[in-house]
Simulated assay, not measured.
Amino acid sequence: MKKDKVVDVDFSESIKNNKGKIGGLITAIIVAIIAFVIISGSFYSVEEEEQAVVVQFGKVVTTNTAGLYFKLPIIQSVYKVDMTTHGIGIGYAVDDNGQNITIDDEGIMITSDFNFVDIDFYMEYKVSDPVGYLFNSEDPEEIMKNVALAAIRSTVINYSVDEVITTGKSQIQAEVKEILAKELMNQDIGLMVTNISVQDAEPPTAEIIQAFKAVETAKQSKETKINNANKYKSEQIPAADASADAIIQAAEAAKEARIAEAEGETARFNAMYEEYKKYPLITKQRMFYEAIENVLPGAKVIITDGQTQEMLPLESFTGEESAAPKNSLANDTASAEGGNN
C-alpha cells in the first residue's frame, strides 16, 4: 500500500511540471505572434503609381510617394490612393462582353433649336489631391460624373442640333472641359479631368438619323461642288488675265494710233490755216474742190461766173469732150485768179 501512494505522488508532480512547460510555450508563441504583427505593421511600401496618406487619431500626418516607410503600429493607419488615369463613359456603359450599352437618362439632351440629340462622351480623369479624394466626399467619382453631366447639358443647349452632330464637336469639348475644371476645383473632391471627348452624336430616332445622314450627304456634295468651282476659278482666272492683258495692249496700241492720227490732223490743219491766212480765197476754193472730189469722185465740175447762162452739151457717145466747156472752165479759172490778184 505504501508503494502505490509513492507512485501516485510522482505522477501528479509530473503533470504539474508539464502544464507549466506548456503554458510557457503558449505564452512564448503569443508573444512572438504579437511581436511579428507589431513589426510587420510598422512598415509599408508605396508603389510607383500610388500615394499613401498616413492618419493618426483621425488627422492626416503625412502623404508619401513611392518607397518603403515606417509607421507607428496600431496608432497610425495608411490609405493608399491610385494616381493613374482612369476613364469613364457618359451616356453609355461597357458590359462584361465589351459592348456599349446606351444610357438614355445621360445621353439624350436638348439643343438650342429645341431638338433632341443622343450624345456620348468619354472622360479621362485622375486623383489630383489624395487627401481631398479620401476625406472630402463619400463618392468623389459619382460627384464628378454629376458635375460632368451638368456641364455637358449647359453647353449642348447653346448649340443647334446640326452643330452638335457635325461642326461643333471640338468647341463643345473645349467648353465642357473648361467648365469641369472650374467646378471640380470648387467641389474640392481631389479629382481632375485630363481629357473629355465626344464619342458619338446622333438623333435619338431612326427616322431622324436617316434625315441627318441625308443632310450630311448634301453638305458633302456642297463642299465638293465648291471645291470644283474653286478649281475652275483657279484655272480660268489666268486665261482671263491673259485675255485682259491682250485687250489692254490692243487698246493702248489703238490709243497711240489715234493720238498720232489726231496729231497729224492737227499739224495738217495748222499748215492749212497758215496757207489760209496768206491766200484766203484760193485756200477756200481749194478746200471746196477737194471736198467735192471726196464727196463726188469722178464727177465733172464746171465753174462759171454766176451771171452767164449757157447750155452745156452732153458728152459725146465717142467719149470726146466738147471744146466749149473746156474754154469756159479755163476762162473762169483765169478770171478767178485775176480777181484774187
Rank of each mutant, 00 (worst) to 15 (best):
K3F: 07
D4S: 10
D8N: 05
D10G: 03
D10E: 13
F11E: 10
S12A: 08
K16P: 00
N17L: 09
N18R: 13
K21Y: 09
I22Q: 07
I22C: 01
L25R: 05
V31P: 01
A32N: 01
I34Y: 02
A35Q: 01
F36G: 10
V37E: 04
V37T: 05
S40K: 09
F43D: 00
E47D: 13
E50G: 03
F57I: 02
F57K: 14
K59P: 00
T62Y: 01
Y69T: 06
Y69M: 05
L72P: 00
I74Y: 07
V81Q: 05
H86Q: 14
G87T: 12
I90W: 06
I90Q: 06
G91L: 04
D96E: 15
G107E: 12
I110E: 13
T111K: 10
T111W: 08
D113C: 04
F114L: 10
F121H: 09
E124N: 10
K126M: 08
D129H: 07
P130Y: 07
V131M: 06
Y133H: 11
L134M: 05
F135R: 02
N136R: 09
D139S: 11
E141G: 01
E142G: 04
E142V: 06
I143Q: 12
A150Q: 14
I152S: 11
I152K: 05
I157V: 15
E163H: 06
E163Q: 15
I165V: 14
L180K: 03
N186K: 14
Q187S: 07
D188C: 00
G190T: 04
G190W: 04
L191S: 06
T194L: 02
N195Q: 13
A201T: 08
E202I: 06
E202Q: 15
P203D: 03
I209K: 09
Q210N: 14
I226A: 11
N227Y: 02
A229N: 10
Y232R: 14
D241A: 09
A242E: 12
S243W: 05
A244M: 10
D245Y: 04
E252Q: 13
A254W: 00
R258S: 08
E265L: 11
R268M: 11
M272Y: 14
E274M: 03
K277S: 08
K284G: 00
Q285N: 11
R286I: 03
R286A: 12
Y289D: 15
E290K: 15
A291E: 06
A291D: 03
N294W: 05
P297T: 08
V301T: 11
V301N: 03
I303M: 11
D305Q: 04
Q307Y: 13
L312C: 01
E315I: 11
K326M: 12
K326D: 13
N327F: 13
A334N: 14
A334Q: 14
A334C: 01
